[in-house]
Amino acid sequence: MEHLIVIVLLSFLAITAVAIVMLHDLVAVVMLFGIFSLLSAVIFLVLDAVDVAFTEAAVGAGISTVLMLGTLALTTPKEKTSPRFAPIPLLVVIITGAALVYGTLDMPRYGDPTAAIHQHVAPRYLERAPRETGIPNVVTAVLASYRGYDTLGEVTVIFTAGVGVMLLLGSPRRQTKRKRGKR
């Protein structure tokens, strides 16, 4: 029953993705991308990943959409070139997809508790994390305690990206240029 819900939601995602690729009005594309993110957040919720679900809803559907709309406001909301049918990229995509589908045939089935991924370190975390860290939410315990250095690295990446954006868009040279342009 639970898997049925996931199947229906995944089908919605596929339809949204096709619409995103086909449409030329970029505002509509960005809005559809917000819907896509929100749908995937719902899927994460059904698949028991509650922390991932609210992060995706806040960051993926919220901040990404706002950033893209801001970019459209600074550039142009219309896709100019009408893309003609391109057989070679379609062939490349179909071949890559077929290779990946072939790769999934060996994968453990959905929800299989005997899959290799559930055997090694995850049971240890589930068993000891509440005692060792005092946090009942194992995801938080792993993120902030066992793999705290990874999270520090993540913060470094965000800081670097923030500095990059500031250097690209906030440099004094650019602002004087813009003022000159206004005059």
């Binding site: 992060t55 995850a122 589930l126 792993v142 999270t151 965000i158």
Partner: peptide, 20 residues
């Protein structure tokens, strides 16, 4: 819980690269 942790990190890094 392990893939959840990995993907939490990936979502936030993803929005940073999108912004850049």
């Amino acid at each position: 819980p392990l893939p959840h942790v990995l993907i939490l990190t990936a979502i936030v890094v993803g929005v940073a690269t999108t912004a850049l």
